[in-house]
Amino acid sequence: MKLEKLDYFQPFIVVVAILAFLLMGYIGSFNYRFEDPLDLEVILTIVFACAVFTIGAFIVKYKINVENTKEINFLSEKLLVGLVIVALILQALNLVLIGGIPLFNSVLKSNATTNIWRVAYPLFLIMINVLLAKYYDRKYLLLVLLGAVIFGLNGYRTSVLGILGSSFITLFYLEKISRKVGIAFIAIIVVGIMAIGYIASQSIATQHWTLNPVELVFYRAAFTLEVFERILPLSGTTHGHILSMIFSSGSPRTFIGQYVLSDNVCLTSTLFGPVCLDFGLIGLTVQMLFMGAFLGMVHKLKKGIGVGIYSIILTHTLIWIETGPTDIMIWFLYLIGFILILINFNYIKLNKD
């Protein structure tokens, strides 16, 4: 099999990304923390989670067949372009109503995820990927870049990664990624994420960072894994409270900051932190088995708009490796994947071999 024919974005890429994040955090724990390096329990728990995820993805890959997929025809090109533009206008309006650019002001950033943004971001994310998947045209890449810039002004790296990462994966499956385009896209993603993270850190008036953009990436990985390390002794003690907050009201990440560090801060706690706090090792096992199987199933439906849907879900699962699955908006994307599975249910067959 030629290298360019490999499916780099199978669900198993999540395991590769998790282990890469663990390595970055372990290196960062030596250079930028004042405590001991990551505990062995952290490493073993993450390796266990990767093994469970792999089992779920493996079962679907080799035991489930999809004979065909149902084409969805009511989404016209004009409708999709119109909705993409509406999303961009909404985010521009959001910036106007906030009163500035959150990327350069930490106070504005704390108020940037308004209800308008909660509509604009998923609308843009879904529609741009479906547009690329159904009606690819090189001119639509300008909309991708414009969206990354406008939503990046909110000061959150995850928005830029979500837009550029999912678009890149969609283009990959459409076989529209040449070597030059691929290198350029990856360079834009890496530089964009590091730049936003660095600029945002410098805009925090109460903190004074001396790390350069590369060092900051390793520091963030180490700190997030340290939060998970502190969660492990507390496993199962919140009894589903974080899960209930995700689907109701409140800020799960702020709650984790208060509960784990006794400080009113918003914390990322890895893909594993929230579920471990709520349900312990059993909850972690169920979550990782579900994610592996679910991504494996949506991966098998990556035809037509399914390409865009899979790209979105995979990208945000990769983002969750650091941030944790605490955003109801992203679980909405999982819901879209579930609807895709239901639409194609009659085409899904169990492999009896």
Rank of each mutant, 00 (worst) to 15 (best):
E4M: 12
L6I: 15
F9S: 03
F12K: 02
L19P: 01
F21W: 07
Y26E: 01
R33V: 02
L38D: 05
E41C: 02
I43P: 02
A49E: 05
C50W: 09
F53R: 06
G56A: 04
Y62T: 13
K63C: 07
N65G: 02
N68Q: 11
T69Q: 02
E71P: 07
I72M: 03
L83N: 12
V84Q: 03
V96N: 09
L97Q: 11
L103N: 04
V107C: 00
V107M: 01
A112V: 06
A112M: 05
V119E: 00
F124I: 11
I126C: 01
M127N: 13
N129R: 05
K134T: 01
Y135P: 04
Y140I: 00
L146P: 04
V149Q: 03
I150V: 14
I150Y: 02
I150F: 06
F151S: 10
G152D: 03
L171R: 05
F172S: 15
E175A: 15
A184M: 14
A184D: 12
A187G: 15
I193C: 11
A200H: 09
S201A: 12
A205N: 11
T210E: 13
L211F: 07
V214W: 01
Y219F: 13
A221N: 15
A221D: 09
A222C: 06
E226Q: 11
S235E: 13
T238K: 09
I242H: 01
M245I: 10
F247L: 10
F247K: 06
S249E: 10
S249V: 03
F255L: 00
Y259H: 02
S262V: 02
L267S: 01
S269W: 07
D278S: 04
T285A: 08
Q287E: 15
M288F: 14
L289E: 04
G292L: 11
A293C: 07
F294C: 05
K300V: 11
G306E: 04
V307Q: 08
Y310L: 01
T317W: 13
D327R: 06
I328G: 06
M329A: 15
F332M: 14
L335K: 10
L335F: 15
L335S: 13
L342W: 08
F345P: 06
F345M: 14
I348V: 08
D353A: 13
